[in-house]
Simulated assay, not measured.
Amino acid sequence: MTGLRYVYAVCHPLGAPLQAELTGVAGDPPRLLTHHGLIAVVSHVPERDFAEQPLRAHLEDLDWLTETARAHQGVIDALTVVTTPLPLRLGTVFRDDSGVRVMMEAREDDFRHTLDRLEGRVEWGVKVYVESEPEETGEPAEKAASGRDYLRQRRRYVRAHEDLWQQAEEFASRLHAVLSSHAEDSRLHAPQNATLSGISGQNVLNAAYLVSRHESEEFVELVDRTKDDVPGLRVELTGPWAAYSFAGEETGEGDTT
C-alpha cells in the first residue's frame, strides 16, 4: 500500500504480538519498522489527508481530530499491553520508510536512553476538582430581608468560597507531595479549562506520575484512600497509560516534503 508513514511510537522489539485485527489511523493496521534493533510502529495514511497542508486543516476539525486521536490512542494502548512504548506526538508523519529511518537514526541515542528510563513503568494521571457549589451563581441561598442582610449573606458566601479554595489548594499540594514520593517522577500540567473539557467542577490539580508496573496497585490504593479526605473535592485517577508526560517529545513534526 502506498501513502505516507504515520508513526505512533518507538519501542524495543515486542515480547508478544499485537492483538489481532488491530487497526490504526485511517483504518490501516499498524506495522513494525525495524532499525538498529529499535522498532517504529507505523501505518500507511493517505497523502490527501496527511500531507502538511491538509493535515494542518484537519487539525482544526474537531470531529476528524477526535476520530484520529482515538485511533492513535488505540494503537498506543495495544502496545502498552505487550511492551513499554515511547509514544510520539499525534500527527507525526513521514514521506516513506526511509524518512522514518532517518528520524530514528538521528534520535537513536535519545530514544534508547528514554526507553531504558521508561522500561517497566506506566503513567497514572490524578486530577482534583472543586465540586460545583449550590450558590454557584454567587447569590445567597436565603432571601435577604434588607440590603444589610444581603451584604452580610454575600460576605458569608465569599468567605465560605475562599475557605473551600484554600482547603482545595492545600489538599492538592499535600496529595501531590505524597504521590510524588511514591512515584519515580512526576509532572504538573496546567489545570483543565472546565468549559473546554466539559467536566464539572474547577480543576485545581492536574498531575502525572511515573510508576513501576509492580508498584501500581499500591499507588492506586494510595489515591483511593484520599478520595474522601475533604468534602466538596473530587479526586479522579486515570491510567495506566503509556508515559506521554515523560517521553521528552519536543516536536511532532515529520518530513512530508
Rank of each mutant, 00 (worst) to 15 (best):
Y6F: 09
Y6H: 08
V7I: 03
Y8G: 06
A9P: 05
C11D: 03
C11E: 01
H12F: 12
A16W: 10
P17G: 08
P17W: 04
L18P: 07
A20D: 12
G24Y: 00
G24S: 00
A26P: 05
A26Q: 03
D28S: 15
T34L: 10
H35N: 00
L38M: 14
V42Q: 04
V45R: 01
V45D: 00
E47Y: 05
F50G: 02
Q53I: 13
Q53A: 15
L59D: 01
D63Q: 11
T68V: 12
R70P: 00
A71S: 07
G74W: 01
I76T: 00
A78S: 06
A78W: 05
L79N: 04
L79Q: 10
T80W: 00
V81F: 00
T83N: 04
P85D: 02
P87M: 12
P87T: 04
L90E: 00
G91P: 05
D97G: 11
R101P: 10
M103A: 14
M104N: 05
D109F: 13
D109W: 09
D109N: 15
D110A: 14
G120F: 09
R121K: 14
R121D: 02
E123A: 09
E123I: 08
G125R: 01
K127Q: 15
S132P: 15
S132L: 15
T137E: 05
E139C: 11
A141D: 08
A144K: 06
A144W: 04
A144R: 00
A145V: 07
S146G: 01
R148D: 13
R148L: 15
R148E: 15
D149T: 06
L151D: 11
L151I: 07
R155A: 15
R155Y: 11
E162G: 05
D163G: 06
D163V: 11
L164C: 04
Q166N: 11
Q167G: 01
E169I: 11
F171T: 07
S173V: 06
R174F: 03
L175P: 04
L179I: 04
D185G: 12
L188F: 03
A190V: 14
P191H: 08
S197K: 05
G198P: 06
S200T: 03
S200A: 01
N203I: 06
V204Y: 10
V204D: 08
L205K: 09
N206C: 03
L210G: 08
D224Y: 08
T226C: 07
K227H: 14
K227S: 08
D229C: 14
G232H: 12
G232L: 14
G232R: 12
L233W: 02
V235T: 08
L237K: 10
T238D: 00
G239V: 02
W241M: 08
A242K: 07
A243W: 11
Y244R: 07
S245L: 06
F246H: 03
F246P: 07
A247C: 09
A247Q: 10
G248K: 09
G248F: 02
E250L: 15
G252A: 04
E253C: 13
G254N: 07
D255M: 02
T256M: 13
